[in-house]
């Protein structure tokens, strides 16, 4: 059975990379002795996939992974069991069962929320906070987007869904995922240029608050909504799974 897990990445662990997080979970699942499923073959591995990798230096309370399990207890017990084997800076927030036909976390990602804060020693919040409306009122926001392979000038305005002040910080909802991925630092770079300020990559801190998928009606909902809260223990009936497979093949 497929499950979706929501988790945090905070504190000093903002400096570990995406692959490290993956390895961390593999070992944490073993320590917690949950019944995760393994691939077949000579070197079996856990069946886990992550939603949207978080860059080094960012914190989050809205990370997701999907995993294949053989047996689960109720949601609350699963969260507690896994968290006992976890460190404080990476904690499971939710654990839900996915329907067999659910899209995987990675391909479902459509948007993400971020809180952008002002790192001490660079800019003051008031130098930015009052100007968001003007910034968003531009017809287009063109910026040089660099990747390992290419550089191109793109218009990021369509991918900024929301931008407003929240608790003296900047709240951002931006397009995320494999299609139109907009990193929050690119928005802040464009915003700095707009205000004729020199952009400094260390001037802001980024905290991911939530990751979304798009429903058929076009609305954005948190990725966790694809799963249902588990009330009673569930056991995969291996025989049944086999029959299911034959059914779907016929």
């Amino acid at each position: 059975m497929k499950v979706r897990i929501k988790f945090t990445k905070t504190g000093s662990l903002r400096f570990i990379g995406h692959l490290d997080v993956m390895r961390y979970f593999q070992k944490a699942f073993r320590r917690s002795k949950v019944d995760i499923a393994y691939s077949k073959g000579f070197s079996p591995h856990q069946l886990i996939s992550f939603a949207a990798p978080l860059g080094i230096g960012l914190t989050s309370e809205g990370e997701y992974l999907d995993a294949e399990f053989l047996k689960v207890q109720d949601t609350k017990t699963m969260i507690e069991t896994i968290n006992k084997a976890m460190v404080e800076e990476i904690q499971v927030l939710d654990f839900r069962l996915l329907s067999e036909d659910a899209d995987n976390a990675m391909s479902s990602v459509a948007a993400a929320d971020y809180l952008v804060d002002f790192r001490e020693g660079y800019y003051l919040p008031e130098e930015f906070l009052g100007y968001m409306k003007e910034f968003l009122n531009q017809e287009e926001i063109r910026i040089l987007k660099k990747s390992k392979k290419s550089e191109q000038v793109v218009d990021i305005r369509p991918f900024i869904y929301e931008m407003e002040e929240k608790e003296n910080k900047i709240f951002l909802k931006v397009s995320t995922g494999s299609v139109d991925n907009l990193k929050p630092n690119l928005v802040m770079e464009a915003f700095s240029h707009f205000l004729s300020k020199e952009y400094n990559e260390f001037a802001f801190t980024y905290h991911r608050v939530e990751t979304y998928m798009r429903k058929e009606d076009g609305t954005l909902v948190p990725l966790i909504e694809a799963g249902r809260v588990i009330e009673e223990p569930v056991l995969v009936d291996l025989e049944l799974t086999k029959e299911d497979e034959t059914d779907s093949n016929s």
């Binding site: 000093s12 400096f15 490290d20 961390y24 460190v87 790192r119 260390f202």
Partner: peptide, 18 residues
């Protein structure tokens, strides 16, 4: 943070392992 984000593999210097 500025230093940790300018160097290779900052995870080498943060400790806090399991």
């Amino acid at each position: 943070d500025e230093i940790l984000m300018s160097i290779e593999k900052p995870a080498r210097y943060i400790g806090n392992e399991v």
